[in-house]
Amino acid sequence: MALISFRDKMRIPSYDNSDHCMMAEVSIDHDKCDRCGLCVKACLPKVIYMEGKGKDRKVLINRNRPTGGRETGEANCYCVACNDCMAICEQGAIKAVTSADYLYRYKQVLRGELTPPRTFND
């Protein structure tokens, strides 16, 4: 059994179709978040953004589809799973939920769960 069938191999996913391209996702724990804004600066595609000013400001995640914003004129945002936000957060408030996946030609295979570095010393 091939990892990717010939049919799938010949088919290029439509990048604007959310059934074909699943973007990576991160979550923010608002209790831990101290709203320093470092993650907002570190986020390349501007998926993480700050809303409001002063004490009421809140860090939010834009879940727009990569091309979904085109028609409405919104920014073209999607998570590339660089996880810079998670690494830069001093409060440990950001967690990766899922990593990116695609269908057909670019389907991810032989992949396991999101796992922190291990020493295998048990």
């Binding site: 600066k41 570190a42 996880n83 998670m86 690494a87 001093e90 990766a96 999101l114």
Partner: peptide, 15 residues
């Protein structure tokens, strides 16, 4: 870099 972007994070494991 601005900030300290060097925390260890989770990443996909592969077979």
């Amino acid at each position: 870099p601005v900030g300290k972007p060097d925390g260890m994070i989770a990443r996909e494991a592969y077979h």
